[in-house]
Every structure is written in C-alpha cells, then in structure tokens.
Amino acid sequence: MNEPLGGSWNAGRHPAPHTPLDAGGAAEPAVLERLHARLVNAAAQEHLLDIAYRIVDTPIGPLLLAASEQGLLRVAYAREGHDAVLEKLAARISPRILLAPARLDRAASELEEYFARRRTHFDLPLDFRLAKGFRREVLNHLPDIGYGQKASYAAVAAAAGSPRAVRAVGTACATNPLPVVLPCHRVVRSDGTAGGYVGGPDAKRALLELEAAA
C-alpha cells in the first residue's frame, strides 16, 4: 500500500531505547493499527476530521484523493509529490488530516469504473475551495466537454465568458485541484496537439486514448 506519511512507526527523533523495561513491543503495530482506526472513527463522528485522504492505484499511477466533509477537495498525481500536497492542504485548509479511506470509497470506486471504461462522467460532491475567481469559473465549465471529446483552450475561454483569456485557461488547467474528475485533460491546443498537463504528457495521452477507445 502506498502511504506517503510516516512510513515507519518509529521515525521519532529519539530512537526507542531497548532497556529491560521496553517490553511487549511485538504486539505494538497491530494495536496501533486498531487505535488508528478508532481515532479516525471518533474524529469523523465529532467533526474533527477536516481532511480525509487515501491513495488509489490507477493505470496512470497512484493518485492521492483528499476530501473535506463537503466533498472531494483534491486529486493529486505522484509527480506533484503526495507529501508536499498534504503539507499544502495542512497550511491552506486545516492540519486536521488523517489517512481515512472510508470517506473516499465512492470517489475511489467511480475512478475505478472510469478506468475500466464503465463510467463516462463523475457524480461526486466536490469542494471547490482550492480554486478561486476565474480559475474556478474555468473548472466549472470543464465537465461540459463530454467524454471522448476535446476542446481548445480558446473554446474554453469563450465558454467561461472571457474569449481573450486563453492563457488564463492554461493556468487554470495546470492548477486544477481535481484532475481526471474535472476533465482538464480534454482541453488541447488549437492545432490539435495535446498541450501540457498537470499529470504529465503521458498521463494526458493515456486518458485521451482511454476515452477514445470506449
């Protein structure tokens, strides 16, 4: 399983000393796993779990999924650095962040269906807090580009009400906090070439091919 944070339970500054008193350590990982699950449940119940995250494996690599109580907040490619993405979420939204897969079950299964070509659009509550102003306006228009279709940056700019803001559309796509779910991969250059992508050119090509083959 991919876990970006705290791979080792004993990663503290002070190494755990092996004195005669340090007894019963063998059962610890199982106990800690159980306690972690209990903490996640209690935190969710008391509305203290501001951001839940998990990592799902997909044909385009591991994707970090993070959700607030409102909805899906962030989808991140490995190349963005999952640790760095979580740190930014801590600074920008809240540091109350736990590895808590259950909240992301629906997003994970919709993504699985999408990659298996059994789903052509996402039906998930979304939290748009990470996008402001014109960028958010652009993101709102992305789902209008249907599955298997493509639109130029210029066409998206026009749809968002600012036909001359072609560059700003490029920026909005490059900083899309919810790639794949909000299909910025369907936005391409006017000459038909793919253009840049937050997940890298290979991921963009793979997504366009996946949808074209359906």
Binding site: L5, G6, G7, S8, W9, N10, A11, G12, A16, E28, V31, L32, L35, H36, L39, I51, Y53, L86, E87, L89, A90, A91, P95, R96, I97, L98, L99
Partner: peptide, 17 residues
C-alpha cells in the same frame, strides 16, 4: 507550519502508547 496530523500520529503513537 503545522504538519498533517497523520504524521504526528505515526511518529508519536508508539511513545504515547
């Protein structure tokens, strides 16, 4: 800034136990 709480749990969970 404060790091994600998950990291705090992973790092200090054993000592607290």
């Amino acid at each position: 800034p404060l790091e994600p709480f998950e990291r705090v749990v992973a790092r200090y969970g054993p000592a607290v136990l």
